[in-house]
Design a binder for these strands. Structure first.
Lengths: 171, 171
DNA sequence: TCATTTTTTTAACCTAGGTTAACGATTAGT
DNA sequence: ACTAATCGTTAACCTAGGTTAAAAAAATGA
């Protein structure tokens, strides 16, 4: 069994309107989501309500809170920036199936490996690059991002304020 | 087959003296390492030679460059801060074995999942916390770290200079 | 189209942390 | 125990980015 078979068997399709949350920081949510259509942001809020954007999600991407999957609560919130369609896959089913299915287990290894690589890349950027370098990097990897995402959101993703991003662009 | 069996079958034990590198940024190195004894740092150097520390490694931890495993070069270097003994496991063997061994494949899923959680936590800290908060966090999770790691290295791990860390401590 | 809301820019001022350099304090090697 | 090297601290000065607020620009909706 591969990931597509698994999705056919256990996945349910869900529609969300722009500006609705798929889940909120603090929720229990043991699902894996695959984006079919739309754009989302995954973000943290601190105690003062300040927002920090973990990542943007586009069709083909997948997401879950690893904290929540491993018997915890979501460490972040997930919000639709546009009308969105996604597939919701119960993680319990994924693990149960993988426990008895060699092909699927190896597909999940691939998936986790590529997730790990992405997280490691983000860690690198946050640790080693200046805000300006992170911005250049983002543009290089995603030249038309500003058509899809507001500058406000881009700034929060880079770890700076919208004011600071405006300054960087001005140069 | 579980991870320990795999280590017995394909792992080789290696000793390194303090201040020697296990691998260098830019190397090809398709091995997974398990730390038996010692302390190490994983770090990036930028074009000007400035150093940024990804993580410290202690007995029981494991490490590899995910970039290098996936037919690339190491994105960081690995250096022993103390005399070190570690087990070197060829990643090719791990994948070949997992491809035909359900138990092992699921053990690797566990391993990758816990790796992903760690990277996600680090991403959170770098994105959302100030240097001072990151320092407090580190002390909470590892109260005796300054007996094991110099302040210079701690600062580079936090993403600040040793001078800045000295200032933070002074408060 | 007009009105409202949201986004982006600009400016003034502030703060955390960087840089350089000098000086003690430790540590390691002989 | 002595020397050399490394490490930690302090100070002076600098810079990237934060904060607040107001104005301009753009998007949204009736």
């Amino acid at each position: 069994m591969n990931l597509n078979d698994l999705i056919k068997q256990f996945g349910t399709s869900q529609n969300y309107q722009k500006n609705t949350n798929v889940f909120l920081q603090g929720d229990e949510d043991q699902y894996l989501y695959v984006i079919q259509e739309g754009v989302l942001k995954a973000y943290y809020n601190d105690v003062e309500g300040k927002e920090y954007i973990k990542s943007f999600l586009f069709p083909g991407d997948n997401i879950a809170s690893t904290q929540a999957l491993n018997r915890g609560r979501c460490s972040f919130s997930l919000l639709c920036l546009k009308d969105t369609r996604l597939i919701k896959l119960p993680y319990q089913k994924v693990r149960e199936t993988a426990a008895n299915d060699l092909e699927l287990a190896n597909a999940i290894i691939e998936l986790l490996m590529s997730f790990a690589m992405k997280k490691e890349q983000r860690e690198f950027e946050l640790l080693c690059l200046s805000a300006e370098q992170r911005y250049q990097n983002l543009l290089k990897g995603f030249p038309n991002i500003s058509q899809q995402i507001t500058q406000n959101n881009i700034a929060r993703y880079l770890g700076i304020t919208p004011v600071a991003l405006s300054r960087i662009k001005h140069k």
